[in-house]
């Protein structure tokens, strides 16, 4: 398998594009025609559906090189997007090992890891990186282990410490987030950082989700999909930079909604880390323009029904209430009222 990496941007001229292949493998998040929160966990790991974003443990796609370039730009402007409290260094090494090992095993033509005891040799061909270092010795890397490896891995990473029967947001790399801030959430526990989410607390969702996450076992990672809407293919929709992207919400018109309005899907996975007992929480972001999404008839019908019937608080929370009617009107033309098949995948 060869991947052709796109030369594209996620800001300014927004030259981001999905190829036909990327559209086909997009992780459409709705398995039925309506949506409400649920603890929708399923096992993650090797052996996911061939060709889908679930096939490999850390999916690498055509956007890899451009996403890493975009992360570097964001970090240069705001180094606090990557933080690790002092007790989380061991977890950073755990995460580095996990990602290097998975990538080297799952994409041997792109990544290689050679280990000789604690002396490791890492080769990342797409980014042109070759690094020899001593595992667990931070002086042998150009930056901390968490920052080092997450500058080479798509998606955001929260690394959660587990103690007192709770999870704590004590480290992370967050540059492609749906309007939340690591710098604000750092040190918070599971209930504190979820406090802004409407309705879910009353539904007991967080209690149940936390119980599940506390018991995630080594070698048995889980995943779920989450979603929102974003205007323009922008990875960094952070509170810190709201002044840059918030006003863009007002640029949506019935004429440009198909091209400028994106469905934003997060593939969230959960991994128990061996040495630190921390929980790694990668949040991988996938973007698709509505005009690309509607090329899959099942997704077009279903997304129309979901957005049309969504409770108002959720549209508010997800930040697209202002454009909701334009989106519904656009999608309505692709919904002939026919039934849709179960599950998230496109009909063959």
């Amino acid at each position: 398998m060869t991947i052709r990496f796109n030369d594209e941007t996620f800001r300014d001229d927004y030259s981001f594009r999905n190829s036909a292949e990327a559209i086909r493998r997009f992780p459409f998040p709705f398995d039925k025609d309506d949506y409400m929160y649920s603890v929708n966990m399923e096992p993650h790991g090797t052996g996911g559906r061939a060709g889908s974003v679930f096939e490999k443990r850390f999916d690498v796609d055509e956007h890899y090189v451009a996403e890493m370039r975009d992360r570097a730009i964001t970090l240069a402007g705001d180094p606090l997007r990557c933080q690790s409290l002092p007790h989380m260094e061991l977890a950073g090494w755990d995460l580095l090992e996990l990602i290097m090992q998975c990538k080297a095993e799952d994409y041997p033509e792109l990544f290689q890891l050679h280990r000789d005891g604690d002396r490791w040799h890492w080769i990342n061909r797409p980014l042109g990186i070759e690094q020899r270092f001593t595992f667990l010795d931070p002086t042998t890397l150009p930056c901390g282990p968490l920052e080092y490896i997450t500058r080479q891995a798509q998606g955001d990473f929260a690394v959660l410490d587990q103690r007192e029967g709770n999870l704590w947001m004590d480290a992370g790399m967050v540059t492609s987030q749906a309007d939340w801030s690591l710098d604000f959430d750092i040190g918070m526990n599971f209930f504190e950082w979820h406090a802004p989410v409407p309705k879910a607390a009353e539904m007991g969702i967080f209690q149940r989700a936390l119980k599940f996450l506390l018991a995630v076992q080594q070698g048995a990672p889980s995943r779920r999909l989450n979603w929102t809407m974003t205007v323009n293919p922008r990875l960094d929709t952070s509170p810190e930079n709201y002044h840059l992207w918030g006003p863009e919400k007002r640029t949506i018109t019935p004429e440009n909604v198909g091209a400028k309005q994106y469905l934003r899907v997060e593939l969230q996975s959960f991994w128990r880390l061996p040495r630190s007992n921390a929980l790694a929480f990668p949040i991988r972001c996938y973007l698709i323009a509505l005009e690309d999404l509607v090329t899959v008839p099942k997704w077009a019908r279903r997304l129309h029904r979901v957005i049309r019937d969504l409770p108002d608080e959720l549209a508010d929370y997800k930040g697209f209430a202002v454009n909701r009617q334009i989106i519904i009107d656009y999608l309505a033309q692709f919904d002939d009222g026919k039934p849709t098949s179960p599950g998230i995948f496109a009909d063959d």
């Binding site: 409290l85 002092p86 061991l90 410490d161 587990q162 076992q217 080594q218 048995a220 061996p274 007992n277």
Partner: peptide
């Protein structure tokens, strides 16, 4: 043998 699970971890702080 099950894989290890830790309910009695050190608090590294």
């Amino acid at each position: 043998i099950s894989l290890p699970l830790n309910l009695f971890a050190l608090d590294l702080r």
